[in-house]
Amino acid sequence: MNRIWLALVCLLPLETALAQDQSDWLRRMEQAASTISYRGDFVFVRGDLMRHMRVVHLVDSEGVHQRVFSLDGPPNETLLGGGQPGLMAASGYGGSAETENLPFSTLLPQRLQALNGLYQISLGGIDRVAEHQAQVVNVEPEDGYRFGFRLWSELGSGLLLRAQMLNSTGQVIEQFSFSSVDLDAAGGSIPVAEVQLSPPQLLAPETGHLTNWRVGKIPPGFALQSMRRYAGQRQAVVDHLLFSDGLATVSVFIEPVQDGDEFSNQSVNTGIVNALTGTVSDNQVTVMGEVPVATLSMIFNSLQPGGLAASAESTAPSDPVGQ
């Protein structure tokens, strides 16, 4: 009996420590994204598509500046970070709308705890990625409303070196992996794109009263994270509601149906990035996200116009697990 007692006493703190450890890895990954300057090449694979890409990610007193561009296929890129309008003009694509400083939110402890109820987080072994030692972290969903992840976090800095998104049978549906990475890129500069690219039409932020929408029953763990209003086509306004379970995100776009909109009730299933669209009370509502279709359709069906509760509560970004 005494021996059993002893074993238990020793075991318990260890278990707690382990759980903390798993959360720590997630937090470190997030922090690394907003605190470390790095540059590197990575490969992005999704289904049959394979692209080599380069990232330059610099953090200075003004915040995060990042350029991600393709090394093969059509020359495309994204730019983040403010204060460098010349750079934006030179590259075009992803320009103007990205000049607002992109927030790298940190995982709050509550959010991590909530993740624990929705995903099983466990530590795998140590692996080697792009000449760096990395801790493997498995994030498995508890239900069919979200996809799972396998993450490789660099031992020293926590930077995510490789990530795989998995379906319910454990098959990889999308992944990226660094082939080489320099974790000490501070003081460098962001290269300017050589090819002039035409910017796609982007939504411009706009202020004004948000349409009132009521959100009914949505998949467990998902909560309204933010609401924004944008200027859409033809003087229309677009309201953008963002739902998140702390890891997966689902966007809802709402804009009034205009004359000439032909087919407004549609479900677009691209297989992996899914989108649903339909009309709700003369508004075109489009739901999209890297989640199973069931999640989208449940959120779509939960939306009702006229409620005040959801919008009043969440015009400011709120903690997604607050409810």
């Binding site: 997630l26 990954m29 997030e30 690394a32 994204a33 907003s34 990575f42 992005f44 890409m53 990232v55 991600v68 992803g94 709308a97 990205e98 992109l102 927030p103 790298f104 939110s105 995982l107 992840f149 993450l151 995510l160 070196l161 490789r162 990530a163 998104m165 999308e174 992944q175 990226f176 796609p200 039409q201 982007l202 939504l203 933010s226 944008y230 859409g232 677009v238 953008h240 963002l242 998140s244 702390g246 890891l247 995100t249 966007s251 776009f253 990035v273 989108a275 489009t286 999209m288 996200g289 890297e290």
Partner: peptide
């Protein structure tokens, strides 16, 4: 346009790295 907005927002959660 929706997709770009969606991805921009979802990227603020650094958990998916480069994806």
């Amino acid at each position: 346009a929706y997709l770009v907005s969606h991805v921009k927002q979802s990227a603020t959660n650094g958990m998916q790295g480069m994806l």
